[in-house]
């Protein structure tokens, strides 16, 4: 009788695990389908860059996106700044279109909301992303938080808020936390004006520096069929 109970319990646990794995795959597949329904968009944005060594005012402009990875910020003749390389301001790079392995990390609470945490590992060895961890609001089928580890550009953490465009999985606000390398130019070249304000020693000098980029999307024009020439 005891052996029968243990056997039943083992079968039940295995079944539960299998069913959960399937659910995670399904959840990810649904999420990917929802995100990939947007093939391009044009959005009016306000971008706030908060990086230790950068002093940049609030940048207002138009952000253009075309799947899978084309992105351009236009600022009516002004200079636009975007994070380089793998740090795209879209979920598309976090939700790879290729083959991936999904690991279900279970349920959790994030900002008072019940979420499901999934680990997404791209199977493609050439992928620059090592691992992406996403916090999914299952009820709304939206990614509210994501953490990506890349091979060469450190880690990237992204917070996403949704409102009017939640049906398209397009956020109203994204906050990106990124690792930064040091920025230094020789003083003999820049010939700085020393304003005699002593810089306090940075206790985190040896630790990787962090920066944030916050983008508020004011409105979207979705799937208008943006030409590639827009990104040249």
């Amino acid at each position: 009788m005891r052996k029968y109970r243990i056997c039943c319990l083992a079968v039940a646990m295995l079944a539960s695990t299998l069913s959960r794995a399937q659910t995670a795959d399904e959840l990810f597949a649904s999420l990917r389908t929802k995100i990939l329904q947007v093939t391009d968009y044009e959005a009016r944005v306000n971008m706030k860059i908060d990086v230790t060594y950068m002093r940049v005012p609030l940048l207002k402009g138009t952000l253009y996106f075309k799947a899978p990875d084309k992105m351009k910020l236009e600022r009516n003749g002004g200079v636009s700044i975007l994070p380089r390389k793998n740090v795209k301001l879209t979920l598309s790079n976090l939700i790879p279109t290729g083959k991936v392995t999904i690991i279900d990390m279970g349920a959790a609470a994030y900002n008072g909301k019940k979420v499901r945490i999934l680990k997404v590992v791209p199977d493609d060895e050439k992928s620059t992303i090592v691992l992406t961890k996403i916090w999914v609001d299952e009820a709304r089928l939206l990614v509210v938080h994501a953490e990506t580890t890349t091979y060469s550009d450190g880690s990237l953490v992204m917070d996403l808020d949704y409102d009017k465009y939640a049906a398209y999985a397009l956020p109203d606000r994204i906050k990106i936390f990124m690792d930064l390398k040091d920025y230094k130019l020789p003083k003999s070249v820049t010939m700085d004006y020393d304003n005699a304000t002593p810089t306090p020693p940075d206790p985190k000098q040896d630790k990787p520096k962090k920066g944030t980029i916050e983008i508020k999307y004011l409105d979207y024009k979705i799937n208008q069929g943006l030409p590639d020439s827009r990104f040249e």
Partner: peptide
Amino acid sequence: GDMINMKSDTFIL
């Protein structure tokens, strides 16, 4: 246009 100013430890736009 917008002007960039590169100091030894700060980038200004």
